[in-house]
């Protein structure tokens, strides 16, 4: 005997669905009552996986449920980010985002599940990671001013390697080019910054724009000198490097990491998420991790984070237009 498709059954079904909907708020009050999945749109290795795992490790203690870290890499982080954006907005799927995956990729790729900051829920900004410019230890450029002077004398002659075309180090350099009117050529490499650094150490380029974690070891060994940091303030890892924000051109595009969730999470769950992440970021444990790994902290929640990402959308768009016009 099958289920007859009559009015009685249909009404029952509708009532059932309505009841499920009504159960929503009560569920939210109990949130979280099961494991939460945290999607990292990058492969393990590199800077994104450790910061996610650290955040989850502490958040777990705050929320008293397990956080399962899932790496979903690929397609410039858009595959994993898409998985978060498209997940059910029940607070059980959140994930890592970066200003590159959230604000830059929508400019480059069509058909993504998010176009701008309205496509997802901003939760919290975890940290900034400044890009830095390193030159070989025996380079004639002792300071960033030397470098700029040479760039002005010979436009387009100076080359710096970056870890890939339109990665945040590349965008940082290009934004600086746009603001300053200088023309430093970026040469993209692959392989997570390692090969880009190798090109600088081997003298095939004049310098390399990358991150502290990759360069620190070479600096300690006296093979590399960091002359600039693409940030507003001094970078504690390399206090001698000149912040680009202190040049007349005020360009400071960093890499920033955020936590996002799908759009439409009930407010009570959101409030709990904000409160818990706030506690994580204010705790000594996370701060110590950030310092040890070269992150600078600048916590922003919800709408403040959204505003920052909108700024990045605008900056990236300007850089793209600039690169388009320079062609």
């Amino acid at each position: 005997m099958g289920l007859a498709f009559n009015r009685r059954n249909v009404l029952l079904a509708v009532a059932g669905i309505a009841a499920l909907g009504a159960a929503g708020p009560t569920q939210a009050q109990e949130w979280p009552n099961r494991d939460i999945t945290f999607i990292v749109p990058y492969a393990p290795g590199g800077s994104t996986d450790p910061i996610s795992r650290k955040f989850c490790e502490i958040l777990e203690k705050e929320l008293k449920v397990k956080l399962i870290v899932e790496n979903k890499p690929g397609a410039s982080a858009t595959i994993g980010t898409g998985a978060v954006v498209r997940a059910a907005p029940d607070g059980y799927t959140i994930g890592l985002g970066s200003n590159s995956s959230l604000a830059y990729q929508p400019l480059e790729m069509k058909g993504l599940a998010w176009k701008d900051t309205d496509g997802y829920q901003s939760i919290v900004k975890l940290a900034d990671l400044p890009s830095i410019l390193g030159v070989p230890a025996d380079s004639r450029f002792k300071t960033f001013d030397d470098f700029i002077a040479e760039a002005r004398k010979n436009p387009g002659k100076l080359k710096v390697s970056v870890s890939g075309l339109r990665t945040t180090p590349d965008l940082a350099m290009q934004h600086f080019n746009k603001q300053s009117g200088l023309r430093v050529t970026t040469v993209p490499f692959t392989g997570g910054g390692g090969e880009a650094l190798l090109a600088a150490l081997g003298g095939r380029v004049d310098g390399s724009v990358g991150f502290g974690a990759t360069m620190k070891g070479q600096v300690d060994a006296g093979k590399l000198r960091v002359i600039a940091t693409f940030s507003n303030d001094k970078y504690f890892l390399f206090p001698d490097a000149k912040p680009t924000g202190e040049t007349p051109w005020k360009s400071a595009v960093r890499t920033a990491y955020y936590v996002i969730a799908p759009k439409g999470i009930p407010q009570p769950i959101l409030d709990k998420l904000f409160a818990a992440s706030k506690k994580v970021l204010e705790g000594e444990d996370f701060k110590a991790f950030a310092v040890a790994n070269g992150y600078t902290m600048d916590p922003k929640f919800g709408d403040d984070m959204k505003k920052e990402l909108m700024d990045y959308e605008r900056q990236f768009k300007e850089v793209n237009d600039f690169l388009e016009s320079a062609k």
Binding site: A43, P44, G45, G46, D49, P50, R53, G191, G192, G194, L197, L198, A213, T214, K216, G217, Q218, D220, A221, K223, A292, N293
Partner: peptide, 27 residues
């Protein structure tokens, strides 16, 4: 060198960094 050439080496570098070990020529 402290520079990873293979995905596995990148993972090992990542393991060092999380543990506060600085990879590089001075290791």
């Amino acid at each position: 060198l402290g520079i990873p050439f293979t995905p596995i080496a990148a993972l090992m570098i990542s393991a060092m960094l999380v543990q506060g070990v600085q990879p590089g020529p001075l290791l």
